[in-house]
Amino acid sequence: MVTPKLFLTTWLLLCSVLGGAVATAVADDAAQKQVRRQAEQPLNNAPVWRAVRYGAEHSTQATGREAGVLIQSAGETWRQIRNGPITLYGGLLLILVPISIGLFYQWKGPLKLNGHPTGRLVQRFSYWERLIHWSVAITFVILAVTGILMLFGRYVLIPLIGHGGFAWFAQISKNVHNLVGPLFIAAVACMFVMFVRDNVWHSIDWQWLKKAPQVLSGKTHVPSGKYNAAEKGWFWGGVALLGLVVGISGLILDFPNFEQTRATMQVAHVVHGVGALIFVAASLGHIYMGTIGTEGAYAGMRTGYVDETWAKEHHELWFKEVNS
């Protein structure tokens, strides 16, 4: 994984260099326009107001980040994105995904083993793999719960427990979220290194993907390696991609110590919110398949061992490899 800090620095550098150059050019232009306007129509300040609306940094005696910016219009845009689509569709996602999973469970039930357990066990995950997986899992759940509390608590919890009660929760949530975030990133980085070898995409995974609906309803069986196509998809799309996106945007928000401008933090917040909501919704599917959705799967991650029948039925190629 590329170090987030490198990303952060490059991003900030780009922003400041481009922003600075454009702003200076515009400001000089505005000043000349104002001089001309003042001669043509005394007391007409339109060029000045236009420069103000552009959000450029002007001179001020006040110290502080962006103290010279008189108006930043982007805040209103950010507010509308956050209070609009992110809250609405994010909330919708978090309501509909569990409902569909519940319906699926009602309808099909868990994926059962076809054969009988042999009683002979195969090691699927080592101690370190399990340790890393549970570190990621626990930090993820903490971040998800505290993050959801920060976005939806105002609408859901304040009517129930009042402003004072919710502020107490929210204060803890914010601090826990800020502290656990970097731990999550570290755990995800370790996980990537440890699990990437078995998650390389093979041609056989296309076959699995083509027959995914039948496989998920237990009708057919497609042999797969240690991880099947869905698990690999979760690894690359979820752990790697969303982990990177949410991690970097989270660091930008978590450490406002690098003179980030408000525009940077607004963008980071939108990316973080969208990414995290998709991440949480997708994780529900992963958690379902890993617990009640597949018979015998949870034991594998809990103890590290699975039954031979389970291994043969779910990950045949891996089982053969282990046995040979």
Binding site: V35, A39, A51, H58, T60, L70
Partner: peptide, 20 residues
């Protein structure tokens, strides 16, 4: 310390005829 509840911003600082 470090907070400005109010601040004064000068636009086109030092540009004669355009400073506000």
């Amino acid at each position: 310390w470090g907070i400005n509840r109010r601040r004064v911003v000068t636009i086109n600082d030092g540009q004669v005829g355009a400073e506000k």
